[in-house]
Computed example of a mutant assay.
Amino acid sequence: MSETTLNIYDRLEQLGIELPSAGAPAAAYVMSAQSGKTVYLSGHIAKRSGAVWTGKLGATLGTEEGKAAARAVAIDLLATLHNHVGDLNHVTRIVKLMSLVNSTPEFTEQHLVTNGASELIAEVFGERGQHARSAFGVAQIPLGACVEIEMIAEVK
């Protein structure tokens, strides 16, 4: 399947991913904002079975579990992007991910945790999903979540 004929919803189905309902903001902000062809998605925290996925990498969670949490965040980001754009096939590029990993000062694998999101985005969008990225270790994330990720996308 060529890059131009890649249907994002077919790809999600092939990956066994059903997009959840887009989340609602938990404070005084919106989940997405658009300026021109650029869509900015607010930070999404990790959830598991509908509840906040809590924990601290390097203390209560390991890298692989953090990577799974980041993948879950990416799915929620796609749901919000779908809600904003109406059709993920209108996404021309995932520009950037910014990841915050709730971690101990000694934990240094934030980049590997964030791969959970980056790898999924690349699987879904192919070349259009190759993005710039930042991954930071932080002392705490709202509600004790283990990972928070925001995304910037370009649309038609």
Rank of each mutant, 00 (worst) to 15 (best):
T5G: 10
L78Q: 10
L15M: 11
G43L: 04
G66C: 06
W53S: 11
V39G: 12
I8R: 05
K67G: 03
I94H: 02
Y40D: 05
L61N: 13
I121E: 03
A26E: 12
R133F: 06
A27T: 06
A139N: 10
Y29I: 01
S99V: 13
Q14V: 03
G129H: 08
L143K: 14
K156A: 08
P105V: 01
G144T: 07
T104F: 04
A72E: 06
P25D: 06
L97Y: 11
P142N: 09
L78D: 01
I149R: 13
A51Y: 09
G23Q: 06
N83H: 14
L78Y: 06
L143M: 14
G86R: 07
E148L: 10
T92W: 02
I45Q: 09
V155H: 13
A117V: 07
A79E: 04
H82T: 02
P105G: 10
A69R: 03
A79I: 03
T60R: 09
A51S: 14
L12R: 12
M1R: 13
I141A: 04
A27S: 15
E109G: 02
F136G: 04
G144M: 06
L15Q: 10
S35E: 12
E3C: 01
K37V: 00
N115Y: 08
A79L: 03
G36I: 02
E18G: 11
Q14R: 15
Q110M: 06
I152K: 15
K156Y: 05
G16T: 04
H131F: 05
F107T: 09
L143Q: 15
A51D: 11
L143A: 12
V39P: 11
S49V: 01
E119T: 01
H82F: 07
G129P: 14
G43T: 02
Y40M: 10
A74V: 05
F107V: 07
V39R: 13
L112A: 14
R133C: 00
A72R: 14
Q14L: 14
L77H: 11
G86L: 00
S118I: 00
L6Q: 10
G66M: 03
R133S: 05
F136A: 08
V91E: 00
H111D: 12
R128Y: 04
H82G: 02
I45S: 05
S49Q: 13
E119M: 11
M31D: 00
G126R: 12
V39T: 07
T104K: 06
I141E: 01
L61R: 15
W53I: 00
L81H: 05
I75V: 15
A117M: 02
